[in-house]
Simulated scan of single mutants.
Amino acid sequence: MIAILIFIIIFLLILNGLQYFFRAKMNKSLKEIHEKLSDIIKNESAEKVLIQTDQEAVKLVLIQINRFLSYNQKVRADYAKAKESSSKMLSNMSHDLKTPLTVILGYVEKLNLNENMNEDERKEVSNKLYQKTKDVIDLLNQFFDLVKIDADDYAIPLKQVAINEVCRKTVLEFYELLQSKGIQVELNIPEQPLYILGNEDALSRIFSNLISNSIRYGSDGGTFGMTVQEEEEFVTVDIWDNGRGIAAVHQDRVFERLYTLDDARNPEFQGSGLGLSITKRLTEAMKGSIHLSSKPYEKTVFSCIFKRITY
């Protein structure tokens, strides 16, 4: 009986000792985690909490902590990118509004102060004033459209649309302008209807933006082209030119709001940086995608890909 009691006491002492050991080990691990987390937060670093342990519970906690740190790092990076984008957007918007408004003010002053201006000169200045004012209104409309699209407040009702017909109509609207600039037009648009679930107005705006972009930046290549083709269950619309193209450093950013190429702010290549951003968002709103491939003075292609429907 006494032997049994001694055994039980020894067993309890060993058990208590093991509990104390594992508790001390757990406390040590938690302390290390606490110190490491404190350093990461204090230094705002992208490090992870890495400690050696054979305790499964601690390993599971570390996995979740490091997942949270990765998520937090991504959120911070996205915030920094959004902040930088917003800052640049405001700066570019200020520039894009200030320049034409200054010109408009100059025209108004010319009309008011020059009493000796003849009727033809006055009419010419009035026409220029009208066009500049229209440019500002167009810019503001694009900006607010982009804001509405980003806020999911831009209604795009979808229905069956023959995308090749929309392409044909849109190119026709630009045909005279393309001819006036001496640009050779190469079209490959099938007669057989290719249907997608889309919106005709949105598609027209997408293709108009891309054609305008091609004329603005690629007319020096002398050729403009549009190709519509069926690829398995998809329809691809390629709008291309052989002009100066877009350097690789810019290709990943051309769809960002108000992002423009370095020389896009001189009068010859004036652009707002909103058209391609709107184009991308409208394409995605119709469950499509848009891609850019460019080799300067060889071929620059914007490819819009939509899922084909057969009903």
Results as ranks from 00 to 15, higher is better:
Arg253Gln: 07
Arg253Ala: 05
Ser214Asn: 14
Thr236Arg: 11
Val237Asn: 03
Asp241Val: 01
Cys167Ala: 15
Leu197Arg: 14
Glu232His: 07
Thr170Cys: 08
Leu203Pro: 06
Leu261Ala: 07
Leu187Asp: 12
Leu177Gln: 14
Ile278Tyr: 10
Thr300Phe: 01
Pro190Arg: 07
Ala248His: 09
Asn213Gln: 09
Glu173Cys: 05
Lys299Ala: 06
Lys287His: 12
Gly182Phe: 08
Ile211Glu: 01
Ser303Gln: 12
Asp201Ser: 08
Ile196Asp: 07
Val185Pro: 05
Ala202Ser: 15
Ser303Thr: 14
Glu173Gly: 02
Glu233Ala: 10
Ser212Ile: 05
Lys287Tyr: 11
Ile278Ala: 02
Ala247Ser: 13
Lys169Cys: 11
Ser180Arg: 12
Glu232Gly: 06
Ile239Tyr: 00
Gln229Thr: 10
Thr223Met: 07
Lys299Met: 09
Ile211Cys: 07
Arg205Gly: 03
Leu292Glu: 14
Asn242Thr: 15
Gly245Thr: 05
Asn242Asp: 14
Ser294Cys: 11
Pro296Cys: 08
Phe234Ile: 00
Arg265Val: 07
Pro296Phe: 06
Leu172Gln: 13
Ser303Asp: 08
Thr283Asn: 12
Ser277Val: 01
Ala264Pro: 12
Ala202Asp: 06
Tyr217Glu: 04
Leu210Pro: 03
Glu191Gly: 12
Tyr259Gln: 05
Asn188Tyr: 15
Ser214Ile: 08
Thr260Arg: 14
Gly225Arg: 01
Gly271Ala: 13
Asp220Gln: 08
Glu233Pro: 00
Arg168His: 15
Thr236Ser: 06
Asn209Gly: 11
Thr279Trp: 03
Ser219Thr: 06
